[in-house]
Amino acid sequence: MLEVVNLACVRGDRPLFSDLSFALKPGELLHVVGANGTGKTTLLRTLCGLTRQAAGEIRWRGAETRALGDEFRNELAYVGHLNGIQGELTPAENLRAAAGLAGAADPERIDAALETVRLSPYRGFPAKILSQGQKRRLALARLVLLRKPLWILDEPFSALDVASVTLMTQALTGHLADGGMVVLTSHQDFEVEIKNVTYVRLDA
């Protein structure tokens, strides 16, 4: 489904990696590993289409993602370093805004998504009062809510406590069992109960 062929990325004038190729099929998780500064975030942003690659191709269902444009973005959910949460809005409003952008979701689903990440008690408060970890959970609630086939997650477990990491890995496992795909980076240990984990190692 997702195919990367001879990808090369350059940040500023510095080449990060080149000739990177991998493929991801439904139900598979791709774990991008590498030291700080080796281009993990750049790789994920390039896969989304936020950053342009220097060379190589990214294909989704056989077609180049840039050519697919909106069609590709409709099947993609991205959680980057920034949570994409507006402090003035409540958690429920934040999710409603994200749902409105990415595709309609009914109100019950929003409540269910908040329940999944255990933020229901905070649904009426402005999101700026949430802690770092709670904001992260709210960002991850978008994934549960939107049900896109491809998840691209940059350090999804940062700032999360042990219970929340477990919660998220359960969500990941469920998503993969449903035939979803995940590309993620993480320095934290986590356990996913599937065998289809592939690793891509980026070297300095």
Binding site: L50, D70, L82, G84, G87, L101
Partner: peptide, 12 residues
């Protein structure tokens, strides 16, 4: 806050 990335990645 990253909302702009979400706008850029929305299917519109």
């Amino acid at each position: 806050d990253g909302t702009l990335e979400l706008l850029a990645l929305s299917p519109h």
